[in-house]
Design a protein around this nucleic acid. Structure first.
Lengths: 234, 234
DNA sequence: CACAATATGCGAACAGTGCTCTCGTTATGG
DNA sequence: CCATAACGAGAGCACTGTTCGCATATTGTG
């Protein structure tokens, strides 16, 4: 966790507050890993920390705010997993597959966090700006592979129905300044991102039961298909 | 609702029981449409029906069982939407797009039901046999378009990484006896089904905010891309 | 240093929830 | 006709998120 030196806690009280805020989040996260988002109980978190349940409200205004903090953390976690799995020196196809596998491993190890991010949204959550930035880290890691391949002149887009530029609002050039993406390329990357999350949702939520015989293998196949569609060579 | 004539209610009590069972489900569904799965309250359902909350338990053993009944109903609903949107006499591409649009309209009109089916699973979910049959209706509608195109010799599979047959457990021939699907074709249909659900999840859960400029248009584009990948002509 | 302002922790309380159990009442089948 | 089974109602249990008032501890300031 990065601490802004300008806003560093100066008094003992502020220091204790920062620490307890993190401890509450950590306890909530432990509980989340065990019981899932819908069963996350503020009172149980308070019990684990041996404090009154009402004291939690000095640090988080509501259960939803605590969940939002967990969401932010989880977005950064999956972003870390994606970026950590990427080896920029490798071949595009290998980079792509490694990122996909990295995200899958994170999702299998943290299914409740994954559900928190990509499953049914919790009742009254309103994604703040900070969240959308963290949320973009994982898909950006995918996009970077495509961008690098394009910069190297290695992008090979297989034929497919074209995407009307008017359908896309996202300006990829803002996020990856050194590359210019066409609407078609942007759309293909978006679909790859959606595919990665979609296939993991299916696997984690049991929709592939009796359908696939080898989930890991089918996942790798899906990664290859998506990579090829996004224009990665071989 | 189909009533088995062999198990038709014979006594007044059985008749009342069947009716009340349906009324409870209907009230639960009304409530589901308003507040979503996680906030569905058994007691509120009982209030709406002006009965004691404990009386509900004579008809559904638990809240989860009531939710399971709602899941079954929702699977059949989306199956109805898909089948109802399909015009077997139309061109494959048109059939495909119509089914996709039909499912999207259902999902937009019933977001909580959609979340119930394809979002985070509720606590103790145990999908009975009946559920998986109902769940297969929508994807089967997609598969039928591909099967018919193949039977007409119109299937044009664009090049893509091959799918190892060992990865697939589903035997499509069991579901569509008149056509023989290769593992590759089966995989492509599976991915199309996953794509349809995935893109709708993104749209409904707000993951496309600031990304797409025209959700309906992007959805149609996604349908075309998926149809082409599944081998539908034009 | 003294003091007012503020931050914090606690316990009680409120309105909910799912669910169980008991207890009369009512309908059913032998 | 009567024992049995089903049923509805209500009380109660163990929870939940959240609010409120009160006591205590820590501040910045006069």
């Amino acid at each position: 966790m990065y601490t802004d030196p300008m806003n560093a806690p100066r008094t003992a009280r502020e220091r204790a507050r920062a620490e307890l805020t993190r401890e509450i989040l950590a306890a909530a996260r432990r509980q989340l890993g065990e019981v899932g988002p819908s069963a996350l109980s503020l009172r149980a978190v308070a019990r684990e920390l041996e404090m009154a349940s009402s004291a939690i409200y000095r640090y988080y205004k509501s259960r939803d705010e605590l969940l939002t903090a967990l969401i932010l953390e989880a977005y950064n976690d999956v972003g870390d997993a994606a970026e950590g799995a990427d080896d920029p020196a490798a071949e595009p196809g290998e980079r792509w597959a490694a990122i996909w596998r990295g995200v899958r491993e994170w999702a299998l190890a943290n299914p409740h966090e994954f559900a928190l991010l990509y499953g049914t949204p919790v009742p009254g959550y309103a994604a703040p700006q900070e969240t959308s930035l963290a949320a973009s880290r994982m898909p950006l890691t995918l996009a970077r592979v495509v961008a690098d391949a394009k910069a190297a002149g290695a992008l090979r887009l297989p034929p497919a129905p074209p995407c009307d530029p008017a359908l896309i609002a996202l300006d990829m050039t803002e996020l990856l300044p050194e590359t210019v993406f066409s609407a078609d390329e942007t759309a293909r990357v978006l679909l790859a991102w959606n595919r990665l999350v979609g296939i993991l949702s299916y696997e984690l939520h049991g929709h592939l039961y009796g359908v696939t015989a080898d989930d890991a293998g089918f996942f790798d196949y899906t990664a290859r298909v998506s990579g090829a569609f996004a224009g990665l060579p071989d």
